[in-house]
Design a protein around this nucleic acid. Structure first.
Lengths: 133, 133
DNA sequence: AGACGTGTTGACTTTAACGTAAAAAGAAGA
DNA sequence: TCTTCTTTTTACGTTAAAGTCAACACGTCT
């Protein structure tokens, strides 16, 4: 059983560069163990990286992602901190819901554009031009 | 009836700076008319700006946004161009659908984190600490 | 005419998120 | 052991998307 991943294994799996992974480490987003100088990534690290990349796809900055990922392991022992955490959760949720609406709207508009393109296509074809497949 | 918007009206409405709007113009994303040196934004320009900002919220680059917004007005007169357009539309749609899935997953994880925080809160409270509202 | 507010242009600066290159250190196979 | 490959560290470069600052141009209110 392979307990650790090397840096290049992960770069290949996620199609990123070593520079990127080391940069994320410098930002405190992942903290792989070391065997000598070499980095060893655990499955947990791998999961964090997945989360980071998902955050990136959604347009969050690394700073925001850092905060979000930081929520996962944390079980703040104090009530005030817990309230703060829940506030942050709600804020993120609101953002995500807004993004959802934005996506819906964009998809609808894409449908419109496509419909226009299709009808335009029909026009062109029926106007007598013979076109191959 | 107010046919045009000034630059500051729009910056206030969308909470951006004049620098941003002029930058978008330099990138060819909007092309307001001029009265002398002054920029005059039409309702159409305003709509474009809305689209741009929506794209930004979804994490698209200005270059990508430029391409997307460019799709709207275009009715390419040639079949090959139309096919290309439809391909681009499909590519964007795929991206958006992926973002949707990413959002769903993230929302689910936020639910988990919140549930954990809540139960942790109950523990703390029931362990005898008297806390105000 | 003078002052004020708003707008414009141009130039330089900044920040995030990496890219790229150089030099050295281990690891692994012939 | 020699070579080859991967990895690491350090440092400088780059790109996108603005921020900041200076100087100048209008319109208008007094």
């Amino acid at each position: 059983m392979q307990r650790y991943f090397t840096i290049t294994q992960l770069t290949q799996e996620f199609d990123i560069t070593t520079r990127t992974l080391r940069f994320y480490e410098a930002q405190g987003l992942v903290t792989p163990q070391r065997r000598g100088r070499q980095r060893l990534y655990t499955p947990g690290d791998r999961t964090r990286i997945k989360l980071i990349l998902r955050g990136k796809r959604l347009g969050f900055s690394l700073a925001e992602i850092n905060e979000m990922v930081g929520m996962y392991g944390s079980a703040p022992g104090e009530i005030g901190q817990l309230r703060l955490l829940m506030d942050k959760i709600q804020a993120r949720r609101d953002e995500l819901l807004e993004k959802q609406r934005d996506i819906e709207l964009t998809l609808l508009e894409l449908d419109d554009v496509e419909a226009g393109a299709k009808s335009r296509m029909v026009e062109l074809v029926s106007s007598g031009v013979s076109e191959g497949v």
